[in-house]
Amino acid sequence: MTDSQALPPVIVTLESGPAAAGSIDDFELFYSRRALDRFRARLGRQGLLDLLAEDIEKGNSFLRESALASDGSFEAGTTVLTAKGLTAGEFLSWMEKAFAGDEEALLASHPEHYVMAPGADGAFNVVENIGPHVCSFFMGGWGTDAMAWAADADELLPESEFPHKMSSNLFLADGTVVGRALTQFGDTAEGFTASLTVYVPTSCPQDVLEHHLRHYAVEFRNWIDVAAAARA
């Protein structure tokens, strides 16, 4: 069969039945999240770490080798979100509380969040996907003390428009720096804008950066929604 003779796509439309508003995709997302939350709760943090131990070892090896091959150079990408009805200050206040101890809220924001918890020496441990790789890394030095590397970053936005800035190195347990993050927030007439920049080793395949830009979009959208609900 030639391309011109290809069968037309099958289109399924929900005509009636459920009383709730939403599409079939919306229903599937709800049930997927509910199932995922159940498995996370049943396994617990250590159970997830045990289950993913082999994946994490491979993922961390990938990041370590990429960082060494890149010799300290990183490629940046930025996801930009706009929010209405919530100020940057309100959102960041919620984030501060969540990162201080609400792991459940942090995990729920993305299907590929496995651990998000304070670690040793004030660093924050994250186990999540970096591209297709499950990795365990630490974020440290959020705030002005860690802005030295970001001071000359091309992605740095004007202080007058984006006064809320946070930066961090992303590093493995052995201290290898495998990435960076720079998040900047500024109020608008209707809410705020979030500029979310991630830096990955230049030797990484392009899809690693692309997927983390998508990752940012998902997790921050969901965090913003939860922050708005908590304020109400």
Rank of each mutant, 00 (worst) to 15 (best):
M1W: 14
M1T: 15
M1F: 15
S4F: 12
Q5I: 10
P8H: 01
V10M: 10
I11F: 12
E15I: 14
S16Y: 11
G17E: 03
P18H: 12
A20W: 15
A20C: 14
S23L: 00
S23G: 06
I24K: 12
D25F: 06
R33I: 07
R33A: 11
R33N: 13
R34I: 13
D37A: 15
R38I: 08
R38W: 05
F39D: 09
L43F: 05
Q46K: 12
G47S: 04
L48R: 07
L49Q: 09
L51G: 08
L51Q: 07
D55A: 14
I56L: 01
N60A: 04
N60E: 03
L68G: 04
S73R: 05
S73K: 00
S73P: 02
S73D: 04
V80T: 06
L81K: 05
L81F: 00
T82L: 07
A83Y: 04
A83D: 06
K84V: 12
K84I: 11
G85Q: 05
L86W: 01
L86I: 10
A88N: 00
F91Y: 05
F91M: 02
E96D: 10
G101V: 03
A108V: 04
A108W: 05
S109I: 02
P111F: 08
H113L: 00
Y114N: 05
A117H: 12
G119K: 03
A120E: 14
A120M: 13
A120S: 14
D121G: 11
D121I: 11
A123V: 02
V126G: 11
V126C: 13
E128V: 07
E128Q: 12
N129Y: 14
N129W: 13
G131C: 11
M139C: 15
G140M: 01
W142D: 13
G143N: 05
D145W: 13
D145N: 15
M147R: 04
A151H: 10
D152T: 12
A153D: 07
E155Q: 07
E155C: 06
L157S: 07
P158R: 09
F162K: 02
F162N: 00
P163R: 01
H164L: 08
K165R: 02
K165T: 07
S167V: 10
L170D: 06
L170P: 06
F171P: 08
L172V: 03
A173N: 09
V177K: 09
V177Y: 07
R180E: 08
E190T: 09
A194F: 04
A194P: 00
A194L: 07
L196R: 02
L196K: 00
T197N: 00
S203T: 09
S203W: 08
P205L: 08
E210F: 08
E210C: 12
H211Q: 15
H212I: 11
H212L: 13
H212Q: 13
R214V: 13
E219T: 08
R221Q: 04
R221D: 04
N222D: 03
A228T: 00
A229F: 05
R231T: 11
A232I: 14
